[in-house]
Every structure is written in structure tokens, then in C-alpha cells.
């Protein structure tokens, strides 16, 4: 009995002593964390995609609390989530510019000439280092899926040698824009439905030699829908700053002669979109 008591006493004594030591050091080396940062981190999506330009969600939370960034800078959070963060901190939510990525190229395996038989690593960056890649067009999508593998949200799919974006999954974080060696992916306002699917600044005839769906810079879209398009060199662009963005009806009305003016939905199904104008003209 005496032994048991002694053992319990000793153990309790050691426990108490260690507890005091731990308590002392816990106070001494305490990391002061801002409860607000933790709260905001909780409210953020936790995807750590880096789309805001910060190292991750908690880093972004810090910058929100310090006032460096407005909550709306997070491209992934919905409007409600942004409002929740703003309410929790009692600050202004900031103006939201939701963005989506768009692959400005319609040149899949059928539409664009392949000049070489590429036999190397299936990766766009690696391929672009070997003679600029096998594709005839030096500006179009290489279609080897570097962006699709890097997308944290699984929003990019390679269909018939062309990267296409599933708009409902894309949050506009910009990861794909950063990895694409051809700079063919652009971030555009999320509400834009229609895009010019051509990235080549080359002259029309040169583009036509290698691609069936290039933008020839014919200005038909500029004339048909005033203010909604601009022509930059030999390539039309949607004027994303315009008060009114082009719609699917505009695409119908314009009737782009090469078919590079499409809605995002049409681009997704591009492999079924055999353009009639080119039948028998090429090859």
C-alpha cells in the first residue's frame, strides 16, 4: 500500500512539475495569432490555388485583414462568400471582377496542320522547346494538356488535341495562364459568352495555310456589331471593356466566315463543328 501511494505521489509530482514547465514555455514562446485571420481563412474556399497572387488561402486572409486586398480579390469565392467575409470583418467587400479562362484557339487535330511527327514528352512546355512544337501554327494550343494537369479545379479538358474549358468549373485562378508556353489562355470577365478563338498575330494568308479556323481580320464582326469587337493587327478581339458584351445571337447574326467567333459552349463541342466552307478546299 505504501509503495502504491509513493508511486502515485511521485508520478503526480513529476506531472505537476512538467506541467508547470510546459505552461511556462507555452507562455514564453506563444505565437500571437489574429483570430480574424483564422476566421477569414475558415470562410475562404481553402483551394490554395494562388489565383489571388498570394501563397495560399491563409496568406490571402492575412492580406485581407491587413487591408492590403479586398475580399473580392479571391477569384474562387462566390459573391455570398465574399459578402460573408466582408460582414465578418466589417469592411467593404470591394468590387468583384469574376474571371474565367478562355483558350483562344480553335485549332484541334482536324482544323490545324501538324507539320511534324512529334515523338517526345507529352507536355506542352517540353514540346515547345523542340523546334517550337509540331503544330503548323506557332501561336495555337499545342493540346498536350499541361494546363489540364495543372488546373486545381479540373476545369480543362483536352478534346481532339485542343484544350477546352468547362466554364462551370473554372474559377479564373489563372494557373493555366501561367503555365501555358504559348500564352494562348486568357482571363476574361466571367459574364462574357462569346470569344474570338484565334491567338495568331500572323497575316491572314499565312494563317490560312496552316489552319481552317483562323481569324483573318476581315472586320465582319466589327461592322455587324458595333463597339463589341476591335481589330488588333490581323486578329479581332472581343471588346471586354464595352458596356455590352456580344451574345450568342450576335454570333448568329455576324456569321464569322472562318468560324473562329464562337460562344464558349460551341468551343467545348468544337470537334463536332465541321466547318462547311473548308470542305475540299484544303490539303
Amino acid at each position: 500500500m505504501g509503495t502504491l501511494t509513493a508511486a502515485v505521489m511521485v508520478m503526480a509530482g513529476i506531472g505537476l512539475a512538467l506541467g508547470v514547465v510546459i505552461g511556462f514555455f507555452a507562455k514564453l514562446f506563444q505565437v500571437k495569432s489574429d483570430a480574424r485571420v483564422e476566421l477569414v481563412t475558415e470562410l475562404l474556399p481553402g483551394a490554395n490555388c494562388g489565383g489571388c497572387g498570394k501563397a495560399g488561402c491563409s496568406d490571402f486572409a492575412k492580406s485581407v485583414v491587413s487591408g492590403e486586398n479586398p475580399p473580392s480579390k479571391c477569384p474562387v469565392s462566390s459573391k455570398e462568400q465574399v459578402t460573408a467575409i466582408a460582414l465578418a470583418l466589417g469592411i467593404d467587400a470591394g468590387e468583384s471582377f469574376a474571371k474565367k479562362a478562355v483558350v483562344c484557339c480553335g485549332g484541334d487535330r482536324e482544323q490545324t496542320l501538324r507539320l511534324a511527327n512529334y515523338n517526345g514528352v507529352l507536355d506542352c512546355v517540353s514540346a515547345s522547346l523542340v523546334a517550337g512544337g509540331p503544330k503548323g501554327c506557332a501561336y495555337g494550343c499545342l493540346g498536350m494538356g499541361t494546363c489540364a494537369r495543372k488546373c486545381p479545379f479540373g476545369a480543362i479538358e483536352i478534346i481532339n488535341g485542343l484544350a477546352v474549358i468547362h466554364k462551370e468549373l473554372c474559377v479564373g485562378c489563372g494557373t493555366c495562364v501561367a503555365v501555358c508556353p504559348r500564352n494562348v489562355i486568357k482571363l476574361v470577365p466571367a459574364e462574357a459568352e462569346v470569344h474570338v478563338y484565334c491567338n495568331s498575330p500572323a497575316k491572314g494568308p499565312a494563317k490560312k495555310q496552316v489552319c481552317r479556323v483562323p481569324c483573318l481580320g476581315c472586320r465582319k464582326c466589327v461592322r455587324a456589331a458595333e463597339g463589341k469587337f476591335t481589330v488588333n493587327g490581323f486578329r479581332a478581339e472581343v471588346n471586354y471593356q464595352a458596356p455590352e458584351l456580344p451574345t450568342a445571337e450576335d454570333v448568329q447574326k455576324i456569321g464569322c466566315p472562318t468560324g473562329c467567333l464562337l460562344t464558349a459552349e460551341e468551343h467545348l463541342r468544337i470537334e463536332m463543328n465541321e466547318p462547311e466552307w473548308s470542305a475540299g478546299k484544303d490539303e
Binding site: 517526345g120 514528352v121 507536355d123 512546355v125 517540353s126 522547346l129 523542340v130
Partner: peptide, 13 residues
């Protein structure tokens, strides 16, 4: 193995 292509990629990166 496409070793040279890997090296070239690494050097470029």
C-alpha cells in the same frame, strides 16, 4: 527515355 528533352526543359525552367 527522352532525357535530353528533360534536361532542356529543366534548363529553361
Amino acid at each position: 527515355r527522352p532525357l535530353v528533352q528533360h534536361m532542356r526543359r529543366a534548363k529553361a525552367e
